[in-house]
C-alpha cells in the first residue's frame, strides 16, 4: 500500500518534512535484514500536535530516531525545522523525551538538569532559574537531591520531561509521554502539551493510549509495518457524518421520553438509540484525588503545579 499524500501542500513551512523515507537495517555482512520504514511521506505543520500512532514494531521509534539524527535514512529526504537532522543548530531547538527514561542513575535531578543545561551552553543564572521552575512544574522540588536511580518510573519520567523542555524548544518530540505516569501525571502532561501547542510550539508524539492522543492531537498518522496507512486531522478521520447525537436534559416525566421516541420514529423511520451519557473515568478520578489531597502528604511527585514561567514567556 502506498502512503497517502501529505495533508498540507509542500509550500507550507513544515516543522518536519519527510519524503519517501526508507530505513533498512542491515546485518553484520551489510545484507538487508529488516525494512523498518517503507517509503513514508508526511508533514508536521508548525504549532500543531501531531501523533504518530501504530502497534509495536510499526516504525514509530525508528522514524523518531531519524528525525533526531540518531539513525541515518537509507533513502528519501528528511528536513527538521528546515535543515538536516544532523545539524546541531537544529538540535538546539528540539526537546526529546525518549520512550524509556534514560537518565544517569547516580545523578540527582538537580545534577541531571544542570548537566543538560551545560549541553545547551545556557548561562549559569538562566540555567539555575529554569531548573528551579521546571522542578516546581514537575512537582519534584522536594526530591532534587535524591539520586534519580531511586525514583519510581513516573518520577523518572517527569525528570525526562523536564530535560526535554530545558532549552525552551520549538519542536518537542515525545515518545510515549504518558507511559508510567499515574492518571494525575497523565492529565498534567496532556495539559502541558496543549499549553505548549497554544504557545506556538510544535509537538510530535507517539502513544499507545489512543484516548490520550485523541485529546491532544490535531493530526495523526497511523503506521503499520513501516507504512502510513491513514493520515489526516482527527476531525476528518473520526467524524461519523452518517450519525447524529442529540443531547438534552432528562425530562422529569417518563412519558415525555416515550412521546419523543415515538415522534422520532415517525420522522426518521427508525428507532433512535436512547442512552444516558456517562462521565469519563479520568475527570472523576482526578476529582476524588483532589478532594483527598488536602488530608495526606506524599513523598512522590506533587500535583497540579503551574507551567514553568520561562515556557510561558517565550511562546508565540
Amino acid at each position: 500500500m502506498t502512503s497517502p499524500p501529505p495533508s498540507r501542500s509542500q509550500t507550507t513551512d513544515a516543522a518536519i518534512r519527510a519524503r519517501d523515507l526508507v530505513k533498512t537495517f542491515r546485518d553484520f555482512w551489510r545484507r538487508p535484514k529488516v525494512e523498518a520504514v517503507h517509503s513514508i511521506s508526511f508533514d508536521v505543520p508548525p504549532g500543531q500536535v501531531f501523533g504518530l500512532l501504530g502497534p509495536n514494531g510499526s516504525g514509530k521509534s525508528t522514524t523518531i530516531k531519524m528525525i533526531l539524527g540518531l539513525l541515518f535514512p537509507t533513502s528519501g529526504t528528511l528536513e527538521v525545522l528546515g535543515a538536516s537532522p544532523q545539524d546541531t543548530g537544529v538540535k538546539r531547538r528540539i526537546g526529546y523525551l525518549p520512550e524509556e527514561s534514560y537518565l544517569y542513575p547516580q545523578l540527582t535531578p538537580l545534577e541531571t538538569l544542570s548537566f543538560y543545561a551545560r549541553l545547551f551552553n545556557l548561562p549559569a543564572e538562566e540555567a539555575k532559574e529554569r531548573i528551579h521552575q521546571l522542578l516546581e512544574m514537575i512537582g519534584l522540588s522536594h526530591a532534587r537531591h535524591r539520586p534519580v536511580g531511586e525514583f519510581s518510573k513516573g518520577m523518572a519520567r517527569r525528570i525526562g520531561l523536564a530535560q526535554a523542555l530545558l532549552n525552551d524548544p520549538d519542536l518537542i518530540i515525545l515518545d510515549e509521554p504518558t507511559s508510567g505516569l499515574d492518571p494525575q501525571g497523565t492529565h498534567q502532561v496532556k495539559n502541558l502539551i496543549l499549553a505548549l501547542a497554544a504557545r506556538g510550539k510544535t509537538v510530535l508524539l507517539t502513544s499507545h493510549l489512543l484516548a490520550d492522543v485523541e485529546e491532544v492531537c490535531n493530526e495523526v498518522a497511523i503506521l503499520f509495518n513501516g507504512r502510513i496507512l491513514a493520515q489526516g486531522t482527527l476531525d476528518s478521520l473520526l467524524t461519523q457524518k452518517q450519525k447524529t447525537t442529540l443531547s438534552f436534559p432528562t425530562p422529569r416525566q417518563p412519558d415525555t421520553l416515550r412521546e419523543l421516541m415515538k415522534a422520532a420514529k415517525g420522522i426518521l423511520g427508525t428507532v433512535p438509540a436512547l442512552t444516558h451519557p456517562r462521565q469519563a473515568l479520568e475527570p472523576y478520578f482526578l476529582e476524588v484525588i483532589r478532594k483527598a489531597e488536602g488530608d495526606f502528604a506524599t513523598s512522590g511527585a506533587a500535583q497540579d503545579a503551574p507551567l514553568a514561567p520561562f515556557l510561558e514567556q517565550r511562546g508565540g
Binding site: 530516531k65 533526531l68 539524527g69 540518531l70 546541531t88 543548530g89 538540535k91 538546539r92 528540539i94 526529546y96 525518549p98 534514560y102 543538560y116 549541553l119 545547551f120 530535560q163 532549552n167
Partner: peptide, 9 residues
C-alpha cells in the same frame, strides 16, 4: 541517544 539528540557533535 538522549545526549546526542542535544546540540552535541
Amino acid at each position: 541517544a538522549v545526549l546526542l539528540a542535544k546540540p552535541v557533535k
